[in-house]
Computed example of a mutant assay.
Amino acid sequence: MAGWAVAEAVRSLDEASPMLMVTACNGDRYHKPELSVAISKGVDAAKIVKKTGSSAAAELNLSLLPKTFVLNIDSRLKQIRTTRGAFTYDKLVFATGATPFMPDVLPPQYCWRINHLTGFDGLQKALAKGPQRVVIVGGGMIGTELAEDISRAGHRVTIIDRAEYPLCGLLPEQAGRRLAEALHSQGIRYCGGRHVSGAARAEDGSYRLSSIGTAGIAYLDVADQIVVAAGLKTDPRLPERAGLDFHPASGVRVHPDTLQTSVADIYALGDCIDLNGKACRFIAPLQAQADIIAAEIMGQTHAPYAHSEPVVRLKTKSLSVVVSGSPDRDAAWAVQKNSAEELCLQQMQQRQVSAEIRISRP
């Protein structure tokens, strides 16, 4: 999504400048957030794709190298080396996204990671065989959305997370507990306070997932499918080879006004960037980021990029969860409303509402 957004923004300013997109997938265009809510709707990968990569490339008059891997970037010579040859550039844009974090104790071949269309397609086909036991490792936004979606498709779902309640990194305990109750009402088990310690495959083809609780108690869960949704990380390989300022936890560091990296003529946007010391992993800012980079590439004057925290909406049907503003994990939340139907919490800074959480039944 980030790469295509830049391509469109550049073409809106210039119709003819040569542009090359290199991607490890086939470049098809689709709305990524749909991946966590499509299984219960019976939507397959083919229906999610809005436009093939080849047709999108033709419309934007750019050269597309699908299923191609970048091996090295020489920022001094302004050259990238790929599995299909070497190419020089005047301006380079990193739109590489982020990859799902995989705990070292879990064999990758046993686990699904739903961060791209290929992973979704594999899981959707596996679950189409009939009702199954699914264990999701990770109770954040993606894990929670997937849990409800898979449960609504007729499968038995368990979430395992180190935190005592879901969305611990975003919600205070009072709100997280309410979400856990909503998941439970859907038949979803939330097993908090556990960290996964390993997985093995049984003779019948199922998996034995082991975990340890905070009190040292060992647990064993049986699963037909394991899904890992334990957060994202930016692959350091290419940023480091290009000599970019990079932080392992948050990604490629960019200038907050221009989105240029620490190396001249190289820009970055989307899930892979560190903006003001934080990872920026939301869809909403992509268009504004793409517009700034396009103006930079075309040498046009522009106002500085002005980042604003997007409104976060959890795509669950059992409970509406909306987070707005800039939540401070260390600040207290004031209860504005607390009923069976709605919970509203606010944080204040300088007598102004700085963050708000609204949880309600649809």
Rank of each mutant, 00 (worst) to 15 (best):
V105G: 03
D235G: 07
V263T: 10
A295G: 02
D28C: 04
L183G: 01
V228S: 02
M19A: 10
D235S: 13
Q79E: 11
E341I: 01
D274N: 15
A153D: 06
E181R: 13
V335I: 14
G139T: 07
G251E: 09
D257K: 09
G3K: 05
L60V: 01
R241V: 14
S211W: 01
A46K: 14
E309P: 01
C344G: 00
E181H: 11
G27H: 04
I359H: 02
V227E: 00
L65A: 03
V353R: 11
K50N: 10
V312P: 03
V135S: 02
L275D: 05
L65H: 04
F87G: 06
C272T: 12
E309A: 12
R361V: 11
R11C: 01
P107R: 15
G270W: 10
G122K: 15
T316N: 03
A163F: 11
A306E: 12
R358P: 00
V353Y: 05
R29F: 08
A200H: 11
R11Y: 00
Q349T: 12
E309R: 06
A215T: 14
V37M: 10
V22G: 07
N276K: 12
E164Q: 09
L117H: 02
T258V: 09
T88P: 08
T96G: 04
E240T: 14
T261A: 07
G187D: 01
D291S: 06
A147G: 01
L62D: 08
G176H: 07
K315Y: 04
A95I: 07
Q349R: 15
T301I: 11
P33L: 04
C272H: 05
A9I: 02
M102R: 08
P285F: 09
Y190Q: 06
A242Y: 07
R329G: 09
G213A: 05
R76V: 15
G139H: 07
R194T: 07
E164L: 14
Q336H: 08
C111W: 00
T158E: 07
K32Q: 11
L60G: 00
M1I: 05
A38K: 05
V37S: 14
